[in-house]
């Protein structure tokens, strides 16, 4: 994280007035909140946030990788599964993508989709082999070159939160399936008894299919990744309202988690908020 320190120290130098320095260096600002909630004994969620910056004649001045996983399974299997999956996934993406970011040559010509899918497949195998009987959701965003590349399995979500709030991922859950097919309304979905039944999870079956999508970075928006401990408790409009109230992504993430706890905190809460500044 050396580049961050350098940029900050340069800005805070009093001898050079800030106005003379163009404040247009692309930079991530991210905030996280991670809490067990008010009901559960242990935290089965896991989150990872990696931001990388570079300046110079490089293809891209930045990339970021953000992962939220929500584990399930008896005893301590759930928390182990989410961590194992998230770490395995991130390790693979950083090995391939991080190397390329730093000017290294990719070993083969995998597309970003293939990199993310093979990382998900490795995470899936790792959980199946090492923690049979457990499973986890996994939602990850790779940010690079004004694009957000998303991959996910399960019901941990990604949103753009700006003037409005827009959900980007599509849950792999029974209740979402019923909504899609018009059998129940979005309102009924909120009260549906089997809200927590997933159609797929990492670590359950071999050859799992993962959702991949790419969306251009929404200028002026924040990217929010969260587990169902947040979105299952707070409405979209509450999330939007709280996010708007806090200029700092870190403060916003904590405020969101605090509000989820105020509402009872029935489940573990993981929140990642990413903001990009200086990006033209």
């Amino acid at each position: 994280m050396a580049p961050i320190t350098r940029i900050r120290s340069r800005r805070s130098t009093k001898s050079a007035p800030p106005a003379e320095l163009p404040n247009d260096i692309p930079m991530f600002r991210s905030g996280i909140a991670y809490d067990v909630g008010r009901v559960r004994q242990s935290n089965e969620d896991c989150l990872i946030a990696i931001t990388s910056l570079q300046q110079g004649d490089a293809v891209s001045p930045y990339y970021g990788l953000f992962v939220v996983a929500d584990g399930m399974g008896g005893h301590d299997l759930g928390e182990k599964a989410s961590l194992l999956a998230a770490q395995t996934f991130a390790r693979e993406v950083v090995a391939k993508f991080g190397t390329q970011f730093l000017g290294g040559v990719a070993e083969n010509s995998e597309s970003i989709q293939e990199v993310l899918e093979s990382a998900m497949s490795l995470a899936n195998q790792a959980v199946m082999l090492n923690l049979p009987g457990s499973g986890t959701t996994l939602t990850a965003a790779l940010i690079f070159s004004k694009q957000v590349f998303l991959t996910h399995i399960g019901d941990s979500r990604a949103y753009f939160v700006g003037k409005e709030i827009r959900q980007i991922t599509h849950d792999h859950s029974l209740v979402q399936r019923l909504v899609d097919q018009g059998h129940i309304s979005t309102e009924e979905a909120g009260r549906f008894a089997q809200r927590n039944v997933l159609l797929k999870a990492v670590g359950q079956v071999e050859g799992i299919e993962t959702d991949f999508l790419t969306v251009p970075w929404e200028h002026g928006s924040r990217l929010l990744l969260c587990s169902d401990g947040l979105w299952g408790v707070l409405s979209d409009s509450e999330i939007l309202r709280i996010s708007k109230n806090y200029p700092s992504p870190q403060d916003a993430a904590v405020a969101l988690a605090r509000q989820a706890n105020t509402m009872g905190g029935p489940d573990n809460i993981s929140v990642v908020i990413v903001e990009m500044t200086g990006e033209k």
């Binding site: 293809v59 891209s60 390329q100 010509s109 995998e110 597309s111 970003i112 989709q113 293939e114 690079f144 070159s145 004004k146 694009q147 590349f149 991949f212 790419t214």
Partner: peptide
């Protein structure tokens, strides 16, 4: 491909 960098996004 990503138009800025030319990196393959999917095929």
């Amino acid at each position: 491909t990503d138009i800025k960098s030319g990196w393959a996004v999917w095929r």
